[in-house]
C-alpha cells in the first residue's frame, strides 16, 4: 500500500438508492481540493462501490477507499466503523462530511468515538499555518465565524449547496477498505421507499434557485402559482411557515429558522412578509426578489428587487415574459 499524501483531506460520501453519489459530493470535493488533496471514502450499498468510486474520481478524488455496507439494514454504525478505519490509514488533515441527516449522525458518532473536534454546518473551508479552518454563517447569516480543532484533524460537516467550487477530475485510483466492525448497537432499517420523483423540480436543500410562497397565496389551490414560476425558472419550491401552517404545502418545503436553510443563487419570495425567522433561512441567497402587495413588508428590507403588487397579476405576466424571452 502506498502512502497517502501528507495534505490529505478525507471526503466522506455515500451512495443513494440507485447507487449514485449523494448530491453534496461535488461541493465536498470542491472544498477539499482548495485546502489539500481530496481522498474519498465512498460508503456504498452492496455492489455499488466501483461505479461510485469512478464517480468520486471524476469529481476530484485523487484516491478512493471503497467501503460497501456488509448489511444494508444496519443504520449508521457500519459507516462510522468505515470512517474510523479510513482515518487510521489516511491520517488526513481534515474530514469533510455533508451536513445531511446521515452525515450528522456519522460525524457525531465518529467524533464521540475518537474524541475528535467537530465544526458543524460549515459554509466554507480554508487553511492557515496551523491547519484546516471551517467557516460558518450563524444566526441566519448575521455573523461569520471561523472554527477549528485544538489538535488533530477537525471533523467538518458542510452545509448542502453552500460550496460552488468544483475540483478537477482525477484518474481513478481506488481500493477496497477493510473495515473491522465495532459491534456498536444500531437501529435497523426495516424498509425503504425510494423517493418518487413526481416532478423534475430540484430538491429544495442545495437548489441553485428557489421560488417560495407565503400566506399571501391564499389557498392550497392558488399556491400552484409558486410551482408554475418555479418550473419556468428551473427552481425548487419553498414556503414560509405561515403557508405550511395554513396547509398550503407540506412541512418539507418550509424555509426558515425552523425549516430548511437555503443559500441559492436566486430566491424569489411570493406573498411572504419576511418575518425574521423566515429571513434567517434565506438571507444568504445571492439575489433576492420579492413580490408582495404590502409595501411595508419586511421582506423588502433584504430584497435586491422588490415589487409592490399582486402576485396573481405580476407572476403570470413574469412567467409569460420569461417564456417569450426563451423563444
Amino acid at each position: 500500500m502506498t502512502e497517502f499524501p501528507s495534505d490529505a483531506i478525507l471526503v466522506v460520501v455515500e451512495t443513494g438508492a440507485s447507487g449514485e453519489l449523494e448530491k453534496a459530493a461535488p461541493g465536498l470535493f470542491g472544498a477539499a481540493a482548495a485546502v489539500g488533496t481530496p481522498i474519498a471514502l465512498v460508503l456504498a450499498s452492496p455492489g455499488a462501490g466501483s461505479a461510485a468510486a469512478a464517480e468520486a474520481a471524476a469529481l476530484g478524488a485523487r484516491r478512493v477507499l471503497i467501503a460497501e455496507t456488509p448489511d444494508p439494514s444496519v443504520l449508521g454504525v457500519p459507516s462510522v466503523d468505515a470512517l474510523a478505519a479510513a482515518v487510521e490509514q489516511v491520517q488526513p488533515d481534515a474530514i469533510l462530511i455533508s451536513q445531511s441527516l446521515n452525515g450528522r449522525d456519522l460525524a457525531g458518532r465518529y467524533a464521540a468515538r475518537s474524541r475528535a473536534a467537530v465544526s458543524v454546518d460549515a459554509v466554507g473551508v480554508s487553511r492557515d499555518d496551523e491547519g484546516v479552518v471551517a467557516h460558518h454563517s450563524v444566526y441566519g447569516g448575521a455573523y461569520d465565524v471561523t472554527s477549528t480543532s485544538t489538535f488533530g484533524a477537525p471533523v467538518i460537516t458542510v452545509r448542502q449547496g453552500s460550496i460552488e467550487a468544483r475540483a478537477t477530475a482525477q484518474p481513478q485510483d481506488s481500493e477496497t477498505l477493510t473495515v473491522p466492525p465495532s459491534g456498536k448497537r444500531a437501529a435497523r432499517i426495516d424498509s425503504f421507499d425510494e423517493a418518487v420523483v413526481a416532478t423534475s423540480r430540484p430538491e429544495l436543500r442545495g437548489a441553485a434557485k428557489v421560488v417560495a410562497g407565503g400566506r399571501g397565496l391564499g389557498s392550497e389551490e392558488q399556491f400552484a402559482l409558486v410551482g408554475q414560476l418555479a418550473d419556468a425558472l428551473g427552481a425548487a419550491v419553498g414556503a414560509s411557515r405561515a403557508a405550511v401552517d395554513a396547509g398550503y404545502i407540506p412541512t418539507a418545503h418550509q424555509v426558515g429558522q425552523t425549516g430548511v436553510s437555503v443559500s441559492p443563487q436566486l430566491y424569489v419570495a411570493l406573498g411572504i412578509s419576511g418575518a425574521i425567522q423566515h429571513r434567517a433561512g434565506m438571507q444568504t441567497a445571492k439575489m433576492i426578489v420579492a413580490i408582495n402587495k404590502d409595501g411595508d413588508a419586511p421582506i423588502f428590507e433584504v430584497a435586491d428587487f422588490g415589487v409592490v403588487g399582486d402576485v396573481f397579476k405580476v407572476v403570470p405576466q413574469l412567467i409569460s415574459a420569461l417564456e417569450a424571452r426563451k423563444k
Binding site: 455573523y143 471561523t146 435586491d304 428587487f305 415574459a321
Partner: peptide, 29 residues
C-alpha cells in the same frame, strides 16, 4: 472545537423596489 474569529456581517441592503403599474412582471423578467 474552538472559535477562531467572529464578525458581524453588515446587514443586507435593500435594492430596487418598484410599484406594479401593470408591467412589473416584464420588468422583473
Amino acid at each position: 472545537s474552538i472559535m477562531l474569529t467572529v464578525a458581524e456581517k453588515p446587514p443586507r441592503a435593500a435594492g430596487v423596489k418598484i410599484i406594479d403599474e401593470g408591467d412589473a412582471g416584464e420588468k422583473l423578467a
